[in-house]
Amino acid sequence: MADYLNLAGWLAALAQTVLFVAIAPLFANWVKRAKCTLQNRRPPPWLQPYRDLRRLFGKEVVLAHTASHVFRIAPYIVFGTAVLAASIIPFILAEIPFAAMADAIVLVGTLALGRFFLALAGLDVGTSFGGMGSSREMTFAALAEPAMLMVVFTLAMLASSTNLSTVVGFFLEQPLALRPSLLFGLLALLLVGIAETGRIPVDNPATHLELTMIHEAMILEYTGRHLALMEYASQLKLAIYAVLTVNLFLPWGISRTLDPASVGIAVLALTAKLAVLGALLALAETLVAKMRLFRVPTFLAVAFTLSLIGMLSFIMLEGH
């Protein structure tokens, strides 16, 4: 850890975090565009999410009579934890000092902190929709947690570390190998990511006023900059899960030095990987229909079973 705890390392990590936060809406928009193209609709312009955010930041904030301080603090905490989580994960540079600040389990904890406040905000105004969203969000997050942890465990057992930078470094140094444990870990993480970021078939990010909505129900009462922060945080969360998936399981191309050439390659590689993942997500969302609410536990049980088989096959089949 100590060898990259120098000033340049910190600055580079900071710059990387800023970049992450800056491009997160772009990735969300890429998914949206790909989906529109697939469904023969006209896609929104590339910079549409930024325009939306600017518009929302400029609007007046209106509070419900029953809203308390929790309601006003929550957007900042939700957004702050998302930024914190974004700063931890290897993005363009593999080895960043921020990764030593918090390992994979802290990452899960940080996201859970944001979710806690998001759910409280949903309950705060006292509407039925908000409570409904909070209740569902917390339930499904709780069910996703064991699968997520099992994936972390499989990775950590393999690389004997929970430090995300070390894990990425380990995979880069290893010769390329086909590991069943990683295969199932990847699948499980994809399923967990879909559930946690509220994509189809668990939740539909594009609709309001549907009886099965989860995330949108919690933020119904938000306006102005509060709503902007909430929307931004959910775009960040999508980008976090996407980057985590591609960089942990397909780390090739990520830069291990600050050398401009390798950073350039890393940017290109990451763009390509994210573009493919985004397109795949859009394809899946086009092909699959939204699930009935009480099918979601089954969906998450599949994720857990896959992660469990991943862990077991690591122990049984890769025990060398």
Binding site: Q174, P175, A177, L178, R179, P180, L183, S313, H320
Partner: peptide
Amino acid sequence: YADLPLIEQLIRTFAA
């Protein structure tokens, strides 16, 4: 494990 030939890794993957 990573040093095993690809075919042996494939066998294990199929087993899983």
